[in-house]
Amino acid sequence: MIYWHIFMAFFIPGILGYGGGPSSIPLVQQEVVEHYGWMTNQEFSEMVAAGNALPGPIATKMAGFVGYDQAGILGIIVAVFATVAPSLILMIALLSVLMKYKESPYVKNLTKYIRPIIAVLLLVMTFDFAKDAWLSIGWISTLIIMIGAYLLLEKFKIHPAFVICIALIYGMVSTLF
């Protein structure tokens, strides 16, 4: 049963996440946190942070970790398979059809219309996570880290891994006072 749940939890983001792995982040959160309750938002954001600090595709890293956490090695295989296989198999099977339609306005519209939906999901997560942080470390630290992270990431184009390290140091230092 757990394998079936794991499969569904990653199959849905895998076949609905248009725009690559990062756009499946909110869809995975929906399944893993909201639906199945395998993780809290705190744990989910640790996972996203680790995923951003490490190289490689993000969707399969999340699938691998959640799969392992829930059901060991077989869980990894099920979760990664559910993430990767359906769209890849469809792509190879429908190759000739897709080749004809890859420039089709309908296909392009699909990605265009789905992007704002993913954006809403991401924005809602942003607020949820900010609220969680506010409740756990207070509004002063939350604001300092958020503004700092925004400036470092967007203005100074510092690598996410370093920004996460800086936040870790901030957290460690804050326990000293």
Partner: peptide, 16 residues
């Protein structure tokens, strides 16, 4: 404390 400090960073990343 370190783990909690990461949450706002992830919020910003998702926001971006």
């Amino acid at each position: 404390a370190m783990a909690s400090a990461v949450v706002p960073v992830v919020a910003v990343m998702l926001g971006i």
